[in-house]
């Protein structure tokens, strides 16, 4: 997959042959992951497995994000310092999500028991 930056010696005015196999490969991966998500959405409906199902969704979503950002946006092939510059701040978002979703459950609990002692 790293060979898509290769340059061939060209005569002036000549246009190189398209090198698109890696693009279609990533496309197929994205479609397959989406199909797996749908399989879980309809095959795993029991309320007891809600947390597990949602965790699978989140893992698959991050996997999709990895392919879009890494291959389509080319971040995987940039310098290490640029990769970390982009990835490290997004770690704050993970903290934000975990903190506020927990807070949401707590707010809901407090509101539903406001008038019962």
């Amino acid at each position: 997959m790293s060979n898509h930056a290769e340059e061939l010696a060209l005569h002036p005015g000549e246009i190189a042959k398209p090198n698109t196999r890696w693009i279609w490969r990533v496309f197929v991966i994205l479609v397959v992951i989406t199909a797996i998500e749908f399989a879980f959405a309809f095959g795993m409906t029991s309320p007891g497995l809600r947390t597990l199902r949602n965790s699978i969704f989140i893992v698959l979503t991050i996997l999709k994000a990895f392919f879009i950002v890494g291959e389509f946006m080319h971040l995987k092939h940039e310098t290490k310092s640029l990769i970390w510059t982009i990835l490290v701040p997004t770690a704050l978002l993970v903290w934000l999500v975990v903190a506020l979703v927990t807070e949401g459950s707590y707010v809901g609990e407090v509101l539903s028991h406001m008038f019962s002692s």
Partner: peptide
């Protein structure tokens, strides 16, 4: 990404509140 992250986080908070 932070703007959208804030929206989706707000969604998560409000959903868990209900």
């Amino acid at each position: 990404a932070f703007t959208f992250g804030a929206f989706l986080t707000a969604y998560g908070l409000i959903r868990h509140k209900h």
